[in-house]
Simulated scan of single mutants.
Amino acid sequence: MVEIGKYISDAYHYAISDIKKGLVGALLSSIAGAFGAIFGTLLSLYIISYLNPEASPMSLISIVLIACVGFLIALIIGFILDGYYVRVMKTSVENSNTLPDWNNVKDLLVKGFLYWVGGLIVGIIFLIIPFLLIVSGMFLMFIPPLGLLVAGIGFICLIISMIAYIFYSGLAEVNYSVIGFSGFFEFKKIFKMMNIDYILLVIVVIILTILVILIVNVPFMIFKLIFVASSMSKLTILLDIISTVVSSFVGFFTAVFCKRAIALFYRDRVRMD
Rank of each mutant, 00 (worst) to 15 (best):
K20E: 13
M272A: 12
V135Y: 08
G22T: 08
I61R: 07
V250Y: 05
L114T: 06
F167S: 11
I156N: 00
M1L: 05
M193P: 00
I163D: 06
V135K: 08
V122C: 12
I159Y: 03
F126V: 05
L211G: 13
L238R: 01
K234E: 11
V256F: 00
V256Q: 02
D273T: 13
Y50N: 13
G5A: 07
S56P: 05
C258E: 12
F185D: 14
K6F: 01
G180D: 08
L51M: 14
I66V: 15
D268A: 13
W116F: 15
V270C: 03
A172W: 04
I125L: 15
S56W: 04
E3G: 10
S9R: 09
I128E: 09
A164W: 01
L108Y: 03
V86E: 11
M193T: 01
T41E: 04
Y46I: 06
I203S: 10
F113E: 11
K90T: 03
S62D: 09
G180E: 08
K6I: 03
L211H: 04
I31H: 10
V204N: 11
I207K: 01
Y50R: 11
F191I: 15
I66E: 08
Y176R: 09
I66L: 15
I124G: 02
V93L: 08
N97T: 07
K259C: 11
I199M: 10
D10C: 02
L133Q: 11
L28G: 14
T254N: 02
M194I: 15
S247P: 03
R269V: 15
K234Y: 04
F227H: 05
V64K: 04
R267H: 11
I125N: 04
I190A: 07
I241R: 03
I19A: 14
A34K: 00
I63E: 11
I196W: 00
D107E: 15
K188R: 14
T91Y: 00
